[in-house]
């Protein structure tokens, strides 16, 4: 937890002094099931915000709605004041909001360095006609490669540079996906279960990387089930249940919140909810 404790009201939909992402009345139904029904959320800038909730609470659907992978039936959301609803996923990414996936999407039959290079935006050589003429993009490619190698070193993947991504272990893929997302130079990183299926040693490593994102001035919103991890790194926690936000606050607020205990912790609130 960062030194300066947030002082916002620990109530659902509370106002933040500097919100990067604002969501209003987003609803999404699948058939008769109202999967997401969020009245109001503000995600604070340059903080680590955790999105937690029991299975089926609609967290991943909510992620999809925010990042353009799905469209809400109604409601609005803005990122840095720009409207998000109806904007295609790739445009959302270019606006500076990049997501990762619950099931890691390493591009298996491409090398690690090619995975990384892909992440860079505004590549001249991605235009069909300029792509044909290497001198037009070679200089930029060299810059991108240098930046990619720096990030690979930071994420302890430098030795895997020329391996196919399909040959990486599960944890290494998580690292690669996070590093690749950083190639986009996002203002906000959305991590969907970054710790799922990662061994404890690597978890600690991942935690440090996530804290590193905040230190660089980025905003993080992540979905996680491991409560120990959530407590350790998040500045703010948003709790979803049955599609709606039922609580917000710091880890202490959430731990004491009766609605959360009922909906999420249930009868087992004394037991450890960690993966182990």
């Amino acid at each position: 937890m960062s030194a300066d404790q947030p002082v916002w009201q620990p109530v659902p939909g509370s106002r933040k002094d500097d919100a990067i992402l604002v969501v209003d009345g987003i609803r999404r139904a699948f058939g008769g099931l109202l999967a997401v029904n969020v009245a109001h959320i503000e995600v604070p800038r340059n903080r680590i915000t955790a999105l937690i909730g029991p299975n089926g609470a609609g967290k991943t659907t909510f992620f999809n709605l925010l990042t353009g992978f799905d469209t809400p039936d109604e409601g609005t959301s803005t990122f840095n004041g720009q409207h998000l609803v109806g904007i295609a996923a790739h445009k959302v990414a270019r606006m500076g909001m990049v997501r990762t996936f619950q099931l890691t999407k390493a591009l298996s039959r491409m090398t690690v360095i090619e995975n990384m290079r892909l992440g860079a935006t505004d590549q001249r050589g991605e235009n069909l006609f300029r792509g044909l003429f290497a001198p037009l993009w070679r200089g930029q490619e060299a810059q991108i490669t240098a930046r990619a190698e720096e990030l690979l070193a930071r994420f302890n993947l430098a030795h895997m540079r020329d391996e196919l991504a399909g040959g990486l272990s599960g944890g290494q893929r998580k690292l690669l996906e996070m590093a690749r997302a950083l190639m986009v130079e996002p203002e906000m990183v959305m991590l969907d279960e970054p710790m799922a299926g990662v061994n404890p040693a690597l978890k600690q490593n991942l935690l440090e990387h996530i804290k590193g994102l905040r230190a660089e001035g980025r905003t993080v919103l992540f979905v996680e089930h491991d409560m120990d991890m959530v407590r350790e790194i998040s500045d703010w926690i948003i709790v979803m249940a049955e599609g709606a936000v039922i609580a917000e606050g710091t880890a202490d607020d959430i731990g004491a919140n009766q609605a959360v205990i009922d909906a999420y912790l249930g009868a087992h609130h004394d037991s450890d909810l960690g993966d182990g």
Binding site: G68, H90, T100, K105, R109, R117, L118
Partner: peptide
């Protein structure tokens, strides 16, 4: 880089979109 985008679509188009 154009060809790289094509290959990324072959591997996983949602990943390409997210980038």
């Amino acid at each position: 880089p154009w060809g790289r985008v094509l290959k990324s679509i072959r591997e996983d188009e949602d990943a390409a979109r997210s980038l």
